[in-house]
Design a protein around this nucleic acid. Structure first.
Lengths: 183, 183
DNA sequence: GTCTATATGCCGATAGAC
DNA sequence: GTCTATCGGCATATAGAC
């Protein structure tokens, strides 16, 4: 079973990529399995050959979207980027509007509590990973209060800047949070 | 039209109260008009005598829930409470779990971007009101960066603490944000 | 204004042909 | 593995009796 299973993995990856972007942009309920499969160039019937349920897809898609967002975020930065450098990119105005590199941590934050443990576990793991990136990938097990505050200023700040219907306030929120991470 | 219209207003208030609590706890999509009307002791058919659509109900319910949460939050505090005092109550562990006084600003933050302008306007207005409370109800028109950071630490911190599936991390987030507001 | 009944549409999941 | 077709359920919104 050489190519066959490899081709299946590629198909699954295509579904996950489409799902990651759709879910991050629109949330769980506004995206149907039809939407995801159509975006992946397939039809609904093929879905259950790869995933057991929509919720299972969601959990995996969050991880996929987070990896993608993380790569796009850190790509132009140094190998051990400062929190300032991360914040400057993470809190840029394009991200609050519907930029290309949407962060599922910020855009799905309040959606997670409504889902099952599988989804919540995935989100929690990804959030911890981002916190460790902010902490400079130290080997320390504990996350410092300062790192957690920076995490909240980034993720929470981006989420609120996106929610708000007032561009000026949105910009002020991003600026204030960026400044707070630096200080 | 003395009592009649007054009785209608009371009925509408009962619907809004039920909707505010249900929406804040479960989000827009997981609450049906049936659920709201049943919680208000009515049936579905009566709904459209009071509201034009589910979205219109949502916008008004956010304001209702915010007023209720605000009253419960500030009730035992002094007339001009410090941000520290507000934060200590706002970021208490019961709120991150499903306490009684749920804050729609935190619990619905990422839900808002998917709705129409009516809803987003309501959310934005309520968020600005909370920011002004943090600023001590000054007459200043502008919100300072520090106030906005405190706002993000409170609302964003509570949202993330609720999302996460790890009680220890949840507690650390609340503590770190409370400490950050004070400092 | 409130009720019951219904029109209409969408979604998740399954069955069976190829 | 992927397709088409369909089951069963639930949602918003409307119509008409009282």
């Amino acid at each position: 079973m050489g190519w066959k299973s490899e081709h299946k993995q590629q198909t699954k990856a295509r579904i996950l990529s489409a799902a990651g972007q759709l879910f991050t942009r629109l949330g769980y309920e506004r995206v149907s399995i039809d939407d995801v499969m159509a975006a992946a160039g397939l039809t609904r019937g093929a879905f259950y050959a790869h995933f057991g349920s929509k919720s299972e897809l969601y959990a995996e898609a969050i991880v996929t979207a987070a990896i993608r967002a993380r790569n796009l975020l850190l790509e132009p930065l140094s190998e051990s980027p400062s929190v300032d450098a991360i914040a400057a990119r993470y809190l840029s105005p394009e991200r609050a509007r519907d930029g290309d590199a949407r962060c599922p941590l910020a855009f799905l934050a309040t959606d997670i509590h409504q889902r099952d443990d599988q989804v919540r576990d995935a989100y929690t793991r990804v959030l911890k990973g981002f916190a460790r990136t902010l902490a400079g990938n130290t080997t320390a097990v504990e996350l410092s209060p300062q790192t957690l505050r920076q995490l909240v200023l980034l993720v929470g700040g981006l989420a609120l800047a996106r929610a708000v219907n007032d561009p000026a306030l949105s910009q002020c929120l991003l600026d204030a949070c960026r400044q707070g991470v630096n200080g």
